[in-house]
Amino acid sequence: MDIGSALITGMTLTDVQKAEVRATMDAYATAYRTKDFQEMMAIFSPEISGFGSGPDEVIENRQDFIRQIRRDMSQATVLAVDFSDTKIAGDGTVAWVTTRSSITFTAGESPAQIMHGRSTMVLKNTGSRWSIEQIHFSMPYGEQSAGQSFPGV
């Protein structure tokens, strides 16, 4: 089944569509790692929104996204982006993803470090490809103990 034929609403994602969504995620990981700005622009929607892990990493529009990606690319060399424990669901025109994420990087002369986080994404089937419409990357709050819903409890 090609992407265009999946524009029927009310259906769950097929295995083929889930593989297409995963391929988009993998293309994003590769573009991020290789600092391929043009590919990033092709993968992400013009209406992209989301959050990164930093307090100022708020993406409300395409310009915010461009600024964030350029900042990321200027501050570190990404060695790997990995997704694990990935769950992909949807209805044929929209897919939603939850996944654990890890980013291995170096900054300046520092040794490689790994950011372990969690990501969510919403993707839209455009008829010819999947476009990332919304993204969120966060890391667990270090001051909150396992088994507790709030820090300090």
Rank of each mutant, 00 (worst) to 15 (best):
W130S: 01
R129D: 04
G152L: 05
M40T: 11
A29D: 09
S145W: 11
A27K: 10
T9Q: 12
S101H: 04
A29M: 08
A89P: 12
K87R: 13
Q17M: 10
D91T: 03
T77M: 02
I114R: 12
P111L: 02
A89Y: 08
Q63M: 05
D85K: 11
G50L: 00
R33Y: 06
L123K: 01
P140F: 01
E20L: 03
A146R: 05
S74C: 06
I135V: 11
T14P: 09
H116I: 00
A29E: 07
A107I: 09
G52D: 08
I135Y: 10
Q148T: 15
M41L: 15
S119R: 10
D85E: 13
D64L: 03
T86G: 13
Q38D: 13
Y32W: 14
G4P: 09
S53L: 05
H136T: 04
T86K: 03
F44C: 02
M40Y: 06
D72M: 06
R22E: 08
I69T: 10
A19M: 03
I43E: 05
I135H: 11
P111D: 09
G90N: 01
L7D: 08
P55N: 06
T104F: 03
M11F: 11
R71F: 13
E143Y: 11
D56G: 15
L123H: 02
S119G: 09
R129P: 04
V16D: 14
A6Q: 07
Q38P: 07
G90Q: 00
D2Q: 06
D26Y: 08
A23C: 13
D82Q: 13
D72I: 06
G127A: 03
V58H: 15
E20F: 08
D26K: 06
D64H: 12
M11K: 13
S110G: 08
S101N: 07
A146F: 05
R71I: 00
Q63Y: 03
G92A: 05
F37E: 05
K87A: 14
I59M: 14
M41R: 10
S74M: 04
G147S: 04
E47D: 15
V153I: 04
S128Q: 05
V78A: 00
